[in-house]
Design a protein around this nucleic acid. Structure first.
Length: 181
DNA sequence: AGGATGATGGACT
DNA sequence: GTCCATCATCCTA
């Protein structure tokens, strides 16, 4: 299924559908490509754990834009986290990109990370490896436009489903999707 | 206007 | 396992 079609749907379906696809960065004029292996779904007004639970605000407005829009926010005053907007325009659904394996530009990713990781497990690590910062918020990811875009990939055979990490609300929802090592 | 908090990561015991 | 850096956002008043 095409990425645009996948992302247009419900986030708990679109999120696992994003696994195995690639996030490509040309930030800083270097190419880093990551196979997405860990995501979480956030479902706007139906989901107390979502930043969009109480409706659109200046921070979360990207999640309300067309599916495939990048939503970047600052976490704990230190890190950045990246989401792809899901669902129809006007609906605050999103998919948090929590982890992946670097398949191209590993040297650049390691230099940005300041350590020898070849995978990024955790949304802050993903953004650091890919060079994603707050000013990338609102960038559209589905037309291969620099410095950031998504490319389709092979859907993994096995997907693990667990509760989301670090959320205190809606713990009953198993909306984290991981490709096992 | 002010304070608590968080979709985290890294260092340290 | 625990602690904490660090700040935009949101909630209460």
């Amino acid at each position: 299924m095409r990425l645009a079609e996948t992302l247009h749907g419900e986030p708990e379906i679109a999120a696992p559908g994003l696994l195995g696809s690639y996030l490509v960065s040309t930030v800083g004029e270097v190419v880093v490509k990551m196979r997405i292996t860990e995501v979480e779904a956030y479902k706007g007004s139906e989901d107390p754990a979502s930043h969009a639970f109480r409706g659109p605000t200046p921070r979360n407005r990207s999640m309300f834009q067309r599916p495939g829009t990048l939503y970047v926010y600052r976490s704990y005053g230190v890190h950045h986290c990246a989401n792809a907007s899901a669902g129809p325009e006007g609906i605050g659904w999103g998919i948090l990109i929590r982890g992946g394996e670097i398949v191209d530009g590993l040297g650049h990713a390691r230099r940005r990370r300041g350590r020898q990781d070849s995978t990024s497990n955790g949304p802050g690590k993903v953004c650091q490896a890919m060079g994603i910062e707050i000013h990338h918020d609102g960038h559209y990811l589905l037309d291969r436009r620099p410095p950031l875009w998504l490319e389709p990939g092979d859907t993994p055979d096995v997907i693990l489903t667990t509760p989301r990490v670090g959320v205190s609300r809606a713990r009953d929802l198993a909306w984290r999707f991981v490709v096992p090592l």
